[in-house]
Simulated scan of single mutants.
Amino acid sequence: MGDHACGSCSGKDCSGPSEEEKILQANLARIKNKIVVLSGKGGVGKSTVAVNLAQALAMAGKKTGLLDVDVHGPSVPRLLSLSGERPRVDADRMEPINAGPNLWVMSLGFLLPSNREAVIWRGPVKMGMIKQFLRDVRWGDLDFLVVDCPPGTGDEPLSVLQLLGPEAKALIVTTPQGVAVDDVRRSVTFCADVGNPVLGIVENMSGHICSKCGEVDDVFGSGGGEALARETGVPFLGRIPLDAEVVRAGDEGFAFLRVHQEGPTAQAMNRIIKPILAMAEASGETGKE
Rank of each mutant, 00 (worst) to 15 (best):
Glu215Cys: 01
Leu108Asn: 03
Gly263Ser: 08
Arg78Phe: 11
Arg135Thr: 07
Ala192Ile: 02
Ile23His: 14
Lys22Phe: 10
Ile35Trp: 00
Ser283Thr: 14
Leu67Ala: 09
Phe190Glu: 10
Ala168Lys: 13
Cys6Tyr: 14
Leu145Pro: 02
Asp90Arg: 15
Arg93Gly: 00
Ser159Asn: 02
Val160Ile: 08
Ala56Gly: 12
Glu252Gln: 12
Ala268Asn: 00
Arg248Val: 11
Ala29His: 11
Ala268Val: 00
Glu95Asp: 15
Ala5Thr: 15
Lys46Val: 06
Thr153Met: 13
Gly200Leu: 02
Thr64Ile: 07
Arg122Tyr: 02
Val137Phe: 05
Glu20Phe: 11
Leu171Lys: 12
Ser211Asn: 15
Ala99Gln: 06
Leu145Val: 07
Pro96Ser: 12
Ala58Gln: 13
Asp217Phe: 10
Asp183His: 10
Trp104Gln: 14
Leu142Ile: 09
Ser81Asp: 14
Ser283Cys: 11
Met59Ile: 14
Glu156Cys: 01
Ala91Tyr: 12
Met59Ser: 15
Ala255His: 09
Met106Gly: 09
Lys126Thr: 11
Leu38His: 08
Leu103Pro: 06
Gly214Pro: 08
Ile201Phe: 03
Trp139Glu: 00
Ser83Ile: 01
Pro151Gln: 05
Ser47Cys: 02
Ala229Arg: 06
Phe144Gly: 05
Ala268Pro: 02
Ser283Pro: 07
Gly165Glu: 10
Ala180Lys: 10
Leu108Ala: 00
Val119Ala: 10
Glu245Asp: 12
Val160Thr: 11
Glu289Ser: 14
Pro150Val: 01
Phe110Lys: 02
Asn204Leu: 01
Pro87Thr: 03
Arg186Val: 10
Gly207His: 10
Val160Arg: 07
Ile272Phe: 01
Leu277Lys: 13
Val184Phe: 05
Asp90His: 15
Val216His: 04
Leu38Thr: 03
Thr232Pro: 04
Asn115Tyr: 00
Ser39Trp: 03
Ile273Asn: 12
Met59Thr: 14
Asp92Glu: 12
Phe190Met: 13
Lys12Asp: 15
Phe254Pro: 09
Leu257Glu: 06
Gly207Ala: 07
Gly152Lys: 10
Ser187Trp: 04
Ser10Lys: 15
Ala249Glu: 03
Thr232Gln: 06
Phe133Arg: 09
Pro77Glu: 06
Arg122Leu: 06
